[in-house]
Structure formats: C-alpha cells, structure tokens
Design a protein around this nucleic acid. Structure first.
Lengths: 160, 160
DNA sequence: ATGTATGCAAACCATTTGCAATGAC
DNA sequence: GTCATTGCAAATGGTTTGCATACAT
C-alpha cells in the first residue's frame, strides 16, 4: 500500500535525483517508503531492521548513503540527542513537532504544536538564513518519575 | 581573576559534591573555572586545550568525568548537533540562548532571546516534567551564502 | 559503454571502560 | 586507612571509507 505521503515525497525525491543526475535505484525508493511509514522519529537500526524484514536485503552502507541523500535533499532531518543515537524524521512531520527527551531512560516523544513554527520563524536571526529548526525539551518522563519517587522513599540519596 | 559567575556556580557545585559525598578535587574546580570563562558553547577539545595551556596537566578522562558530573548536577547542558561534535554550555547561559547551526560549515552561533524561555515553558507537555530545552535553527550563515552565490554564478549545479 | 551505486570489510575516532597509582576525607 | 579520583592505555561501537562488483542511464 502506497501512502499519500509517500507518493508526494517520492516525487520530490525523484525530482532531486534527476536534477543532480543521480540514479533512481530500487533500494532508494524502498528506504524512502519505509521512512514514510514512521509516524515520528526513528534511528538507523529501527529503519534497517524494518527494511530487511523478513527477506529483502539492503546493506547498512546503502541505508546511510540514502539517508545522507535525503538530508541533502531536505526531505529528512536528523536529531542527534545523545552520543549513542542519531534520530531521523521526515521533515514534513518534524516541522510541527517538538521533542521530549527523558534524561533518565533516553525515550524521545514527538509532540505536535502548531504555534511553534510561526513563533520560531518570527524571530530575528541576523546574518543567517534559517531553513529548519528543532526543539528538544529535556526532562523526566512519567514512568521514570514514578521510579524516582520510589527510590527517594527508600532513602536512596545517590545517583540522580 | 575569579568571575562573579564562577563564584556562584562553584558554590552550587560544592553543594552538589557535598550532598552526593563526592570529593572536591583541584582538577574539578579548575575545569569548572575554565567552563565559566566561555561566553557560549564549546566542545571538549576547546576546553581541554584551554585547561592545559601552557602547563598544568589534566587528562581527557578527567575532563569527560567532570563534564558528566556537571551535567548531572544540572550546571552544564550538552548539545549534540552533528555526529562529530558535542557542544557544551553553562546552563545559566544556555537558558536564554538559541543556536544557529550552519549546515554548510558547521558553525554554531548562540543568540540571546528572552521571550524563548517563557514561550517554551508555557507549552503543555503531558506526562512529562520539563527541566531544560534547547532550540537549534539550521540554515546557512552569511559567509557560506556568499560562497554559494558565487558557485551558482559559475554554473556549479552539483553538491549542495 | 560509462561511471554511479551497492555491499562487504576495514578504518576511523569520539567516548567509555579497566585498572594501578594517587590523594581527599 | 579507606575508597573515590586521576590518568594512562585499551576497548567500544556508530559512522565513514575503500574498493570490487553490479547495474542505471
């Protein structure tokens, strides 16, 4: 099933490949299709596993390569939050998203906020042409907060 | 010369170390002092070189260790923008800053904006307790824009 | 036919880990 | 004296690079 979103973004990717005289390979479109099926952020491993399940084989190099192309084409954005994981997201979705990052468990939750875009683009940024933004809010998620409260009750004063 | 900022943050670090029963070593205070001397973001190498110039020697392990502590203590925040560089910043300064990131040359410029804080904390974040945020605006800096215009004039259509 | 793309393996490099020696308490 | 911290060296692991083979144009 080809989603409406995929169809639209696929066309823009094709335009990009044509303009830059790059090849339209099957792998690239398979990767893009799987990316469009995510509703929010994902990392390279989630994408890699999804693509190669259960059979078709596309190497990690190619996944990296294609993600790089999509970043350059402005169709995907990357969020590097912690040392251990780069998250990617369709630019289209990311534009109205902000990202809640739990500093305890590393969870990232995307939250929609439609005021954000206009607020940010209304700001002055001298000598700089903005193209995109990303907002991370760091804090503690609900689950971790519960766990922490338990610990405090038990008199555990160590470890934040 | 001990800055006012350093004095204040040093006291909060001391409180933290005391509370957690950690040791107050000379190295930790030297590192904190140099951090306070930055007016905006810095990376591990800039910090490391500044500390060990021209004589005193503190190892990179210790710098990493101390940065980790300061992050836990909530005195410093980290921004991981690209794969190759984690940037750090005093939380105190970062709270009113947003970050302009040039996707061409990798430059990061901190810009003060006093409306930001209240706008962001006014947002609803269900099941999540926010503690800090960071906003990156990606785009093209002035210098790179000039260079790109030249390239386009010369008919270079390749490489974004 | 030409030269880009794929996919494997090896290289890279920032960060983390292990551990003996040091030093804060 | 005890045990956290330092600093070196080695390990780790995500990402990048090199190159032979495959394939889009």
């Amino acid at each position: 099933m080809e989603s409406k979103l995929y169809k639209e973004i696929k066309d823009r990717f094709t335009e990009y490949l044509t303009e830059k005289k790059l090849r339209k390979t099957e792998e690239r479109y398979i990767i893009l299709k799987e990316i469009c099926a995510f509703s929010g952020n994902f990392d390279i491993n989630e994408l890699y596993e999804k693509i190669n399940e259960p059979v078709f084989h596309i190497s990690k190099s190619t996944v990296y390569n294609t993600l790089g192309l999509l970043l350059k084409a402005g169709l995907v954005v990357s969020h590097q939050i912690s040392t251990l994981s780069v998250k990617y997201e369709l630019k289209r979705l990311a534009e109205t998203h902000l990202h809640l990052y739990c500093t305890q468990c590393g969870m990232v939750r995307d939250v929609k906020n439609s005021n954000l875009k206009s607020f940010i683009y209304a700001m002055q940024t001298p000598k700089f042409t903005p193209e995109f933004y990303s907002l991370y809010v760091y804090g503690i998620c609900w689950k971790c907060e519960k766990k922490l409260k338990k610990k405090v009750k038990n008199g555990n004063k160590k470890a934040l």
